[in-house]
Design a protein around this nucleic acid. Structure first.
Lengths: 355, 355
DNA sequence: CCATTGATTGTGTACGTGCACAAAATTAGA
DNA sequence: TCTAATTTTGTGCACGTACACAATCAATGG
């Protein structure tokens, strides 16, 4: 293992002291342009890398990380994101990171507004944002930009913001995946149905709409026609939706495959089970407890999973990179792999996602 | 963040010096039973954890890691395992680990024997083993056990060995996954075919046989009968196998779904393409370059991927845990999640996501 | 030209562990 | 009982970085 270049080496090569190199590496200011140029030249030449371990050892400042995401319930989407966050914090437990959650109700814009407004007052070193409402998020980001506080997005991207990094999945591709699965799962002459969300101005509904677009793109590219019934039913609350779903199926008896483009696939599955329908293939999103139950009992054929845990995990790692090593990425978008989960590989993912 | 307990704290509480605690933590011997008891009591009470960073900083000894796996070709299975290994070594590049590969030809037991025999002479601190031949592996492990050198398995498990940990995937479950996919992909009245390996006494062929068992279990549990033609063709070399495959398909025109239980799915795909057959659904294993090509052009419907890079990555992390922190797991078996890869989520997996 | 101020640079210590070596305690031998 | 050998215990330094503080340099005004 080649001996690594140290700050002292850099200092010697640039003809300055270690303190000056330190100031440059950490943007502490008070450095003459002459020194800066000399040091930066040597840094580039040597490809200097921080030693993560000694950095962590010497670090005295406690960073404050604020995590602004929808209420995280165990076994649901944001609960799993939080697990990934906590996993990463645990792995870096030797670094002093004070962590504070700022939860909000993802269906209530006022709750989001209140939560987001309090964030700047907490004087965070960095923020992880799970965005739902575009306008509120833009307002928060503008303020963070002004105070030069780095932030990272998980799950969604919001326009007109400047996150260091974003961890999300490719929703259009998710839609195309669902398309191909339904196409593979059903005979060519069978009809298909799609259920999405109707809510507008809400990013999670945007996700649903992007998935819809991807799904339609897939079927458009097939070279032959498949009949797709686009349902206007908004699958949100179990009891309200059930009747609508059953009526829809009575009206469309040739439907043999259904895509539910949000995480409420279990509601449709339960409706089907209630009618005793068994020959319809169902595909939905997210490994929530309810969906897991349906995959196990066979009423859902496949779940598309977007690695919420991995998103949270990587978001924290990105923050640590930014804070400790001063590596400021600008708007880098990382797409998570998208998993297809069926009954047989479910236990393997449960080990990772749920427990 | 709660202040962590230090070695000095432990020493003070136990009424000994830090040196004594150090000796106990690292099994360096020369400790009276009285001191040992006192310290171990305090260690248990406080739940002492090593500080990974300061450990790494102070570590002066260079560890030697030997990696005994089949020849690792980029874009093939073991090449991807190696990528995961190198990724982990890179992440821990601040720890001095001298790494030496001991490749062998996975189809040649003599090559394996020669390679494995040289390992003990290298005086490794730890070994990562990708096993193929049971007898040779048992011999190697026996020797490592005797010299108290920890080792970790990737990909396969071999009986009568004592690895600290094993990272592999559940081959039986893989077989069941393939079964369900083919069942979902084809009409009930269509015939199915299975291609495996014939080679005996070779662990990779054992993998193939375990998958076969899982596949049959799945179809046995269905509640209705599907016709499955079990081909005796050993899909190994492209040109030799092609003719056999084509003849098999001519003899079995009702076959509409095929499982290839090793990584040579592309050979069957190419054979189908050569005959102009387009309505057969094909499922195979491992994201090799050739299989990737076939998933892209649609001749393979799905690939089962066992996260080879994650296996390699975790194996190295396990070794580091063992060497640095003296955490000696005994025979812990970790199953990797098993991914279903189709054309649409393929690009996401191509970008390697470790951890 | 000197004093004062502010900008820039250099120096020293702490962080917690690993490990070498010195010191002390115990045991063995005569 | 005294010495030598051996076991056990304690001490101190190094690792590379962060950060506080001291030292030096340049600029400005009188």
């Amino acid at each position: 293992m080649a001996r690594q270049v140290k700050i002292k080496d850099i200092a010697q090569m640039a003809g300055v002291s270690a303190g000056t190199v330190d100031r440059i590496l950490h943007n502490r200011g008070n450095v003459s342009s002459k020194s800066r140029e000399a040091v930066e030249k040597v840094l580039a030449e040597t490809g200097y890398k921080f030693n993560i371990h000694t950095s962590a050892v010497s670090l005295k400042k406690a960073y404050k990380l604020v995590i602004a995401i929808p209420t995280a319930i165990d076994g649901e989407y944001w609960g799993t994101v939080r697990k990934g966050i906590e996993h990463a914090l645990d792995e870096y437990s030797d670094i002093a990171i004070d962590c504070e959650y700022a939860f909000y109700n993802q269906f209530d814009i006022f709750s989001c507004r209140n939560s987001f407004r309090s964030i700047a007052e907490k004087k965070p070193s960095a923020v992880i944002i799970g965005a739902t409402f575009a306008s509120e998020t833009v307002a928060l980001c503008r303020r963070l930009d002004k105070e030069d506080i780095p932030y990272v997005f998980v799950d969604s991207v919001i326009d007109k913001t400047n996150p260091s990094e974003t961890y999300s999945s490719d929703q259009n591709a998710c839609g195309r995946i669902v398309g191909r699965l339904l196409n593979l799962f059903t005979p060519k002459d069978a009809e298909l149905a799609v259920f999405g969300s109707r809510r507008i101005g809400n990013e999670r509904a945007n996700n649903s709409m992007t998935r819809m677009k991807g799904l339609m793109e897939y079927f458009g590219s097939l070279g032959y026609r498949r009949i797709i019934k686009e349902s206007r039913i908004s699958v949100q609350e179990p009891e309200e939706s059930k009747k609508d779903i059953i009526r829809f199926l009575e009206d469309n008896p040739a439907v043999k495959g259904i895509a539910v483009l949000n995480s409420r696939g279990y509601i449709v599955a339960d409706s089907l089970a209630a009618c005793g329908i068994k020959d319809i293939r169902l595909v939905s999103f997210d490994l929530t407890v309810n969906n897991i139950r349906c995959v196990k009992d066979g009423t859902i054929s496949a779940i598309i999973c977007q690695r919420p845990e991995l998103q949270g995990f990587h978001a924290v790692k990105a923050i640590i990179r930014t804070l400790l090593y001063n590596i400021k990425e600008k708007n880098v978008h990382h797409f998570m792999p998208t998993d297809i989960v069926i009954k047989e590989n479910l236990p393997m993912y449960k080990e990772i996602y749920v427990e």
